[in-house]
Amino acid sequence: MMDLHDRLDQFAGSPAHPDSTQIDADVARGRAALHRRRVTGAVAASATGVAALVAAVAIAAGGIGTGGVGADAGTGTGDRTTANGSVGASADGAGDGRVRLVAYTGAQPKGFTIDTVPDGWFIQTDDNYSLLLAPDRAKNPGPNADPSRDPVYDPQSFVGKIGIMLQSKDAHGVPEGTTVTVGGKDGVLVKSRPAMTPDGSQPPADGDTGWELYVRQPTGIQLIVQFWEGLGLTQDQMIDIGAGVHVHKDAAQGVG
């Protein structure tokens, strides 16, 4: 016979009381997080003020009803908004220094195959559980490269890359996002949550926290294409990449 409380009590163990170094570290983390919060708040307030001022000046210069404040103001016709909210190129925006998509012509893996990749990217690694796209610079790390410091060289890391996988057996449902159609299939484009550290969430300065594209497969399992932050892809480009992913019978769900 077992007393659940006693069993939980034993399982929880007896951690040592914190020493002064540990407590000071907790205080320091708290102070740093509070400082960041205050700075972020100040910057946001400042940015709001600047935006309001710019809008006021634009209205004054263009005049109400003249079209001075409209879709074309500032960005120019034809530009599209990138996933991170900044102004980016269209999917075929060759020659403007931004990301361009090209047909993938290399050897195809088994679990997943892919039609379209960002120009200058390659399949860094694959198995039945995932397919990992990385920029070309990951091909030649050089003698001084340290994968633990620069995860682009680490084929186990998704940081800075595009990861393609089936939803984990331990995960269920699709987070809230924008409903899209991906190659004729139902999809949802989800803005990634910022990575969390013990120091508190630290979203990048430009607000891009990365994206995940969920595409429901005929089996009912979700295909996930995960775009790390800072890749500079438009939402249309992400959907184009997702539409070119094909899930084969050898593809398997991971766990965890």
Partner: peptide
């Protein structure tokens, strides 16, 4: 949800 490492 946001994977940093390859699934297994």
């Amino acid at each position: 949800w946001r994977r940093r490492e390859r699934p297994m």
